[in-house]
């Protein structure tokens, strides 16, 4: 078992939908755990990559400095990074804020919005909360990404095909119908 390649996954600014789609490979997950060992992943709740990984699966784009930090950590510890889902590949739903300046976004959310109750009149600045970036960036604009898998989420089949190709060292070529942006 010690020689099994390791796979790490994480969700940055995403909704975990891509992880749900990964779980949607159904019984093929049994085959997957035969082939690989999971390092850091919400599936096993390991919080930080423990050893060198063959594949890193990134869900979500970079919305905060912490996202960037985690992504860079993945880049350093994974041989291959797969940007998975629309948030990772183009920013996705979180990137809807990209057309509005950050301060305006925060003021609308915490001060001016019609349903806001905020007696302090302050924007959140707790040190526990990572600083937000001016925009949400797709992962490939932050670190080098080896493979892209768009979709919201990418289908279980697309994820499966990708993992199989990567683990077997075959070239990745998704058939028409598996490349989706929706």
């Amino acid at each position: 078992m010690a020689n099994k390649p390791k796979v790490a996954t994480c969700s940055l600014a995403g909704c975990f939908g891509c992880h749900m789609s990964l779980l949607d490979i159904d019984d093929r997950i049994l085959k997957l755990v035969e082939l690989v060992e999971f390092d850091r992943s919400p599936i096993n709740d390991i919080k930080r990559i423990e050893g060198r990984c063959a594949i890193g699966i990134i869900e979500g784009g970079c919305c905060t400095e912490d996202n960037v930090h985690v992504l860079e950590h993945f880049r350093e510890h994974c041989d291959v990074l797969v940007s998975t889902g629309d948030c990772a590949t183009m920013g996705g739903i979180p990137a809807l804020r990209n057309t509005i300046p950050l301060r305006e976004c925060l003021e609308e959310a915490y001060l001016k919005g019609p349903s806001v109750y905020n007696p302090s009149g302050r924007l959140p600045g707790d040190p526990e909360i990572p600083l937000m970036l001016d925009k949400v960036y797709p992962c490939h604009e932050v670190v080098k990404i080896d493979y892209h898998l768009p979709g919201c989420p990418p289908s279980a089949d697309a994820i499966w095909e990708t993992l199989v190709a990567l683990l077997s060292g075959k070239p990745l070529s998704l058939p028409y119908g598996l490349i989706k942006y929706d």
């Binding site: 400095e65 600083l131 970036l133």
Partner: peptide, 18 residues
């Protein structure tokens, strides 16, 4: 990166005061 991360956090850093 396609952007300067230092600049990208500048607004938020200003708001949070750190």
């Amino acid at each position: 990166p396609s952007f300067d991360p230092g600049k990208a956090v500048a607004v938020a850093a200003g708001i949070a005061g750190r």
